[in-house]
């Protein structure tokens, strides 16, 4: 297992890129993911946050190789995933699972819940035939469903229940790593709370690492120990969740943090309302991709792309304001922010 400063990583992602091309004659290409690196320690949950279209969902698919990356490295449990052939990849798949956003379309509509959960057990012969039913009931109980659900069809379940079935099936495979792609964004808040607390419980029990993808910073702060903020295919800031929530540095992260909805009319907070919208990834801005909406834009931002630099303690940021060689800007930024 690869290690850095004594920490062993379950998943290492380095310089991951994906360019989608469309059109047979006049090829148009979109850099959906443009050079992303992060590590997830064993048993840890890493959060990936960003607005729609930033490429976070694609990252989830890429690390599982559900979409073939254009470039980069994905190392899972010391295995170079992108070097595997089809057969070896299929053998590895049970260990890396995914939970999708829309529970209703995550389940085969013509299979009974019991069969859906039993399918992985059958496919990999994980449990001898005689014990399968018992195992299914065990899993069903673990995710908080009733034994009578075994004979139901997916359309007879609510969204929350469907997501529990998805979880049960994923757990049946005994994965070491799970991508949770907005697992609760189509659920009501009270159900969301149910599902997320269930995920926390099973993560403790089954001990897997998790890539938690969400647009909701409230969830990221509750579910993850470290996180990355994505903007137009790039990570603009990453670090421990605690540090980022206490001391976000990147202007985009700060704007995102200030836009977090707070369910209390008494809390008055200075909001940074970002102007405009995220540019299209087909035609990203030159230099720093955020410069079109950034309040601290300097000339250099339009021309040169900022590199991700380490501020210490794993806090990484891609912003010219923090470029080490230009201390003057950093100081100016600090002053502006404090005012």
């Amino acid at each position: 297992m690869a290690s850095m400063r004594g920490v062993s990583f379950m998943l290492e992602v380095q310089g991951l890129k994906k360019t989608f091309t469309s059109g047979l004659v006049s090829k148009r290409s979109v850099k959906a993911v443009d050079g992303i690196s992060f590590n997830i320690a064993d048993g840890e949950t890493f959060g990936l946050v960003g607005e729609s279209g930033c490429g976070k969902t694609t990252v989830g698919r890429l690390v599982l190789r559900l979409i073939e990356p254009t470039e980069g490295k994905v190392i899972f449990n010391s295995i170079d995933v992108l070097k595997l052939n089809k057969k070896a990849l299929r053998k590895l798949r049970p260990q890396m699972q995914i939970i999708f956003q829309d529970p209703e379309s995550s389940l085969h509509p013509r299979m009974k819940i019991g069969d859906i959960i039993a399918e992985p057990l059958k496919l990999y012969n994980l449990v001898p035939k005689a014990n399968r039913e018992k195992k299914v009931l065990e899993l069903i109980d673990m995710v908080g469903l009733q034994p009578e659900h075994v004979n139901r069809f997916p359309h007879e379940l609510s969204g929350g229940q469907s997501q529990r079935v998805v979880l049960a099936r994923v757990l049946a495979l005994g994965p070491r790593f799970i991508v949770a792609d907005e697992p609760t964004s189509s659920l009501d808040v009270s159900v969301q709370a149910q599902i997320l607390s269930l995920m926390n419980t099973v993560q403790e029990e089954f001990h897997f690492s998790c890539l938690f993808i969400s647009h909701d910073l409230n969830l990221i702060s509750r579910m993850t120990s470290s996180m990355g903020v994505m903007y137009l295919g790039k990570i603009v800031e990453a670090g421990s969740t605690k540090e980022l929530f206490e001391e976000a540095r990147h202007p985009y992260t700060r704007a995102l943090m200030s836009a977090i909805p707070i369910a209390d009319p008494q809390t008055k907070r200075k909001k940074i309302v970002l102007e405009g919208e995220m540019p299209s990834p087909m035609n990203p801005p030159s230099g720093c991709r955020f410069h079109t909406r950034c309040r601290f834009k300097e000339k250099i931002c339009e021309k040169t792309e900022p590199q991700l630099i380490d501020l210490g303690e794993g806090h990484r940021i891609a912003c010219h304001l923090y470029a080490a060689e230009d201390k003057r800007l950093v100081i100016r930024h600090r002053v502006t922010v404090e005012i």
């Binding site: 808040v189 709370a193 702060s221 707070i262």
Partner: peptide, 19 residues
């Protein structure tokens, strides 16, 4: 009360059962 407490910024406490 439970509805408010189930909001992530207010504790994310689940309400048991279904609507």
């Amino acid at each position: 009360r439970s509805f408010l407490e189930s909001v992530p910024s207010r504790g994310m406490k689940p309400i048991r059962g279904i609507s």
